[in-house]
Nucleic acid binder design. Structure first.
Length: 260
DNA sequence: CGTATCCTGACC
DNA sequence: GGTCAGGATACG
């Protein structure tokens, strides 16, 4: 469940659970995570107090009293589980933070593709990222300039975190549908009018998702207009939604509303 | 630029 | 048994 709105929600859950607490111990339960979170890193975390939790794009940043920063990325299937250290561990727990006082936060991730890394103070903790689309100071011109430099399909440009941080496969498709833009047109070909319409659509789709996230857990039909709706009618025109593959990711779109 | 790779589970 | 999955990176 992790695109910007879901990660924003998860980071709030984490913040409420850990800020002000001391890390008693860290346990890495899967070899995939051990590659990035070494026993040397764990030794630096143990005993530190958690000062803050922030989000940037799909990354969560945990600031420690030592000045170090833990960066967590959920990739496809990561999430937090907050409970007590005395309870049985979740089947899919990959990394566990045990807190002083008996609290526990588990990084649960069936596919174990999540990453968790430790960065020293002053060291760059994040990869190169474009602005968050939710940042109100982001101006259309900045977004447009980033798009105009890319000849790749607009859908793929939206997935490039250096263009915008936090947009993933679902909301890229949803935003393009809302803006009535074909996922296959070159990013650089969008007029400034369409650039503006697209940024607005992205913001709208993310804001709506943010409202829904956490409020109704998951379930659900009817959450998306095009994503995972191949062969179903477009809610605007009735044309059947189509699925194509771009950069090894599924793209869903309405071939009528989203012509080039 | 496209392609393979990291993992595991769900589903056909 | 094969395919697909809300992500990103390393490679040729």
């Amino acid at each position: 469940m992790p695109e910007l709105p879901e990660v924003e929600y998860a980071s709030r859950v984490l913040r409420d659970a850990v800020v002000g607490k001391t890390v008693r111990d860290v346990k890495v339960l899967h070899r995939a995570q051990r590659r990035s979170l070494t026993s040397r890193s764990i030794a630096r975390v143990r005993g530190a107090r958690i000062v803050a939790v922030d989000r940037r794009g799909k990354h969560q940043l945990i600031t420690l009293s030592t000045g170090d920063t833990i960066v967590v990325h959920f990739r496809m299937t990561g999430d937090w589980l907050v409970d007590q250290a005395r309870l049985p561990i979740d089947k899919f727990a990959r990394v566990v933070l045990e807190l002083a006082g008996g609290g526990r936060v588990s990084l649960v991730d069936p596919r174990a593709l999540s990453t968790i890394t430790l960065h020293r103070q002053g060291e760059e903790a994040l990869p190169a990222l474009g602005p968050d689309p939710t940042d109100p100071t982001l101006h259309v011109d900045t977004f447009g300039a980033a798009l105009s430099r890319r000849r790749i399909a607009i859908k793929q440009a939206l997935l490039d975190q250096r263009v915008l941080a936090g947009v993933g496969n679902i909301y890229a498709a949803e935003a393009l549908w809302l803006a009535k833009i074909s996922p296959r047109v070159p990013a650089s070909s969008l007029s400034s009018t369409r650039q503006a319409r697209l940024l607005e659509a992205i913001r709208s789709v993310l804001a709506k998702a943010q409202q829904d996230t956490g409020r109704y857990r998951d379930d659900g039909e009817g959450r998306f207009e095009v994503y995972d709706r191949e062969g179903m009618p477009c809610s605007r025109c009735g044309t059947l939604i189509r699925r194509i593959v771009q950069g090894q990711r599924s793209t869903y779109y309405c071939p009528h509303c989203q012509r080039r």
